[in-house]
Amino acid sequence: SKIRITWGDKTWEWDGDDEEVWKRILEWARNLGDEELWRHVKEWVDK
């Protein structure tokens, strides 16, 4: 399956939905430097 994140007018996609993928997404969000996006992603990961 895919994980799709839409933020503003951008959309990103990742293949898979296991823990490793979420770790990569969390790292990606942090590297993007958008605090609010990172917080949202972290909330999803922690669920």
Rank of each mutant, 00 (worst) to 15 (best):
I25E: 00
V41K: 00
D46C: 02
D34S: 06
L32C: 05
K47D: 05
R24T: 14
E27Q: 09
A29H: 01
D34M: 07
R4P: 01
K10A: 12
D46W: 04
R39D: 12
K47N: 11
E19L: 12
K42L: 13
S1W: 04
W7E: 01
L26I: 09
E27K: 04
E35K: 07
K10I: 11
I25G: 00
L26H: 02
V21Y: 03
D9P: 03
I5Y: 05
W38P: 02
R24V: 14
L26D: 02
G33H: 07
A29E: 00
K42W: 09
V21T: 15
R39F: 10
W44L: 15
W38S: 07
I3R: 02
I25P: 00
V41M: 05
K42S: 13
K23L: 08
W12S: 03
W38V: 13
E20I: 09
W28V: 02
V21I: 11
V21F: 05
K42E: 09
E19C: 04
V21A: 06
R39Y: 09
D17Y: 10
D9E: 12
K10Y: 11
E36I: 04
V45K: 10
R30V: 10
E35M: 05
A29V: 05
E19V: 12
E36D: 15
I25K: 00
R39K: 14
V21C: 03
L32H: 15
L32A: 12
H40F: 15
K42A: 12
E27S: 08
E27H: 08
W44C: 03
H40M: 14
E19M: 13
W12I: 06
E13N: 02
K42G: 04
W14G: 03
D18T: 15
E43P: 01
L26W: 05
W22M: 07
V45E: 05
T11F: 12
W14T: 01
G8Y: 15
W44T: 05
A29M: 02
W14N: 01
E35Q: 07
R39V: 09
V21H: 03
D9W: 01
G16D: 08
I3C: 02
V21M: 06
E13Q: 05
E20T: 13
W38A: 12
W14L: 04
H40I: 11
S1L: 15
K2T: 08
R24I: 14
T6I: 13
E36L: 06
D17K: 12
E20V: 09
D18Q: 11
R24K: 11
D18A: 11
W44I: 15
W38G: 07
H40A: 09
K2L: 07
W12K: 04
K23C: 04
E27I: 09
W7H: 07
E43C: 09
D18R: 08
G8V: 03
V45Q: 09
K2E: 02
L32N: 11
W7R: 04
D15R: 03
W14A: 02
E43V: 04
E19T: 13
E36K: 04
W28K: 01
R4N: 07
L37Q: 02
L37F: 15
V41Y: 02
G16N: 14
G8R: 10
L37W: 08
I5M: 05
K23E: 11
W7I: 06
K47L: 10
S1N: 15
V45N: 06
S1A: 15
G16I: 12
R39H: 10
A29Y: 02
G8A: 06
T11D: 06
D34W: 09
V45C: 10
W38R: 10
A29S: 03
K47G: 13
R39W: 10
R30D: 08
K2Y: 08
R39G: 08
D17L: 10
D15L: 08
L37P: 00
H40C: 07
D46H: 04
G16H: 15
W7F: 07
E20P: 04
I25C: 01
W12D: 02
D17G: 15
G33Y: 06
W44D: 00
I3Q: 03
D15F: 07
E13R: 00
I25M: 06
